[in-house]
Design a protein around this nucleic acid. Sequence first.
DNA 1: AAATAGTTCAACCGCATAGGA
DNA 2: GTCCTATGCGGTTGAACTATT
Length: 257
Amino acid sequence: MGRIPCCEKDNVKRGQWTPEEDNKLSSYIAQHGTRNWRLVPKNAGLQRCGKSCRLRWTNYLRPDLNHGEFSESEEQTIVKLHSVLGNRWSLIAAQLTGRTDNDVKNHWNTKLKKKLSGMGIDPVTHKPFSHLMAEIATTLAPPQVTHLAEAALGCFKDEMLHLLSKRRVDFCSASAAVAAEVQTYPTPGLMCDVYPPADGRGFGYEGEGSAWSACTGGGCGEAAPGEENGAEESKSAMFGSECVLWDLSDELMNNIV
DNA sequence: AAATAGTTCAACCGCATAGGA
DNA sequence: GTCCTATGCGGTTGAACTATT
């Protein structure tokens, strides 16, 4: 038994598309549209499966696609939406003109995850690593916490060294950074202030009017669990277990829901 | 210059689901 | 309501390209 294949694989070509194939597919769709993908390869004279044709069209050949670099605002939108929607790539892509789910997914996996990690933010939870450490630490006995902290700091150090060695983070001049108590590391598309881990508990980050400014007022993750109340509450509550980190505009969310 | 490692992204796979018979 | 087919979606793979040693 088993699943019925979407098409006969014996005489179906796979792998990279040639310009000739692209031309055939484009001209066929221009004439007949995309009603029945199973019939497309047959009628267009292509030795491809319909699924492959659909993917090629939606991800590459569609005339409304934007194949250029992702802009800062696009990256901000992706991160905002990912913090709420998770890996719902098609929903996220729908908010970006000319981007496909595959584009967004690839950009996230190859660029944005690393950027966030480099900023000390967990790309899965969108919380600062320091905050996650604090959360975990509350559930562990002191010896375990020590080992965990050492391991985490090692990982974070490795990640930063990796980013720096690959020149993925465009740090501003080292001298200015050393002189300033609050060090500003402007990265392309990521405007944030990175604070040195003065208390040894990790980085906070702040950016005026930026989507990356999840932690307003700085020093996020510094409030010990259970300490927040009053004025502090609104700040630290951003990193509560059920919190939404990014301040999403209504217009953006209304389009999705 | 060659070998190796790392990165990117197009394409594929298989599951989920919508919609028609 | 059930079955079948087409399509959509997210995860994964691997070829091509680039950087480093």
